[in-house]
Design a protein around this nucleic acid. Sequence first.
DNA 1: CGATTTTTTTGACAAAATGTCAAATTTGAC
DNA 2: GTCAAATTTGACATTTTGTCAAAAAAATCG
Lengths: 270, 270
Amino acid sequence: METLTPKQREIRERERRILDVATPMIREHGMSAIKMDSIAQAMNLTRGTIYNHFPNKEEILMAMAGRAVARRMALFHFATTLADRPRWSCAAIGLAAEVYADHLPDDFAIEQMVRHDPVWQKTSPKRRTVLLDCEELCIQAIGSLIDAAIECGDLDGSTTTTIASLKQQITFGLWSLVYGGLVIEATSPSLVTSGIEEPRQAIRRNCNALLDQLDWRPHYKASEYNALVNRITPNLIVRANELQHEHFEGPSDLMLGAQTPNGGEKDHDS
Amino acid sequence: METLTPKQREIRERERRILDVATPMIREHGMSAIKMDSIAQAMNLTRGTIYNHFPNKEEILMAMAGRAVARRMALFHFATTLADRPRWSCAAIGLAAEVYADHLPDDFAIEQMVRHDPVWQKTSPKRRTVLLDCEELCIQAIGSLIDAAIECGDLDGSTTTTIASLKQQITFGLWSLVYGGLVIEATSPSLVTSGIEEPRQAIRRNCNALLDQLDWRPHYKASEYNALVNRITPNLIVRANELQHEHFEGPSDLMLGAQTPNGGEKDHDS
DNA sequence: CGATTTTTTTGACAAAATGTCAAATTTGAC
DNA sequence: GTCAAATTTGACATTTTGTCAAAAAAATCG
């Protein structure tokens, strides 16, 4: 029962191809640009077959989002390995976020979409938890960096009331600055008009300012920081491009839950 | 030609009512929840009539967004008048953003929607510029606070390369922290799971940390800051509730551009 | 006031998209 | 090669959008 028949193999593979085909569609014109029929045609199939894989558009978007978050998580994790001191690893994650937005723009856009479109309610809990779990892992990644920083004396945990609250503040602060900044940059046509011409510089400076203020050592030094940026950005870009073509069948059943058309509920009266 | 016939009056009024009826619909289930027919029925009209006012759903959403941004702008402006030192006015705007998200939640949601849904391209340039102009005014509001702070010596403009770049950094930083933070709070179900239980506290602290780091005086002092919060928040809430029922016929032609079915281009030969 | 012109509303229509399902086809096992 | 199981298909019912000529209502004017 463990060897997959050719047909089963094809079906699995197709699941992935559906996402590949749908992804570029969504980018320009959003959710409403996904037409079950276009996807089917693009794959030389009929709508019915697509519906055997995903019961509706929302599930497709959710599956794309799952893949996107998984990729982002992988990139963030990779980023932390490129530096050897917590604060620099932290900076590396920030850069990874920039690279993510630039080099996996479809994934970036999809993640935003999934937040706002009323997709959430129409999808199965299974897909939702995948997403939530991944996001939580991203948050915890920064949490462990903070732990490590306190451990090695780079950050003083005793200035604030509790370590938990310090973690909260830093994590949420960086998240807001980077995610918020990138979203604003991506969606606000009035940025340049308003004199904000270098949002990326602003994001970086602000993150550093925040961490400096909280006295997370070593404090910002332009030369060091820029050296780090120049050193690791190319690596991040390479990794991002790799990720785009990786299969991510890892947490398979969850990521790409193959659904037998006749349903999983068939057996109760047969 | 200046006195409006009763009918013309009714039509103008209806434009506003359409937005009122549509607004609560969109909240729960997003853009796709606006059905031209539901709106029509809710107003005892037929779809055709709605189409005389707005050529498509996107324009309705855009009109709602225009009203929302105008309200936010008014609230921000009001906030600055509640404090008498630039840094405190700045804090007041941050609080105003919180109040906006809490007490005008439909408007807040609509603003986000308009950013991400592919509404932008399908709408008329006129509506778009309204939105952009309002947003720019919001940005400039912070810009002038920075100018004022430098003027009165609370902020040292000579530490950074240029004042423009300082402005850029502060404006964008606060914007990212507050907007980003509120959006994350509103759309990330995994926040609490991840140990971030007081996003509002985190946002406030981070904004203050950022401004302190840039040495915008007077530096943060819990007692003063909390006093400010307690003093002005009630005023902001009152104002927010007022704004919800104000008519905003101000920049009328733009905000609520009545479209004569036979087109606005009729007058060129009369 | 009533006739006429203009504006507004209507509802029937075509088009596009979703989601369903019994019948047709393909696959895999023997 | 045959047959049962799984898969694909395309026709169908449904929902929503957007259009438009005809009907209705409102404004204008003698």
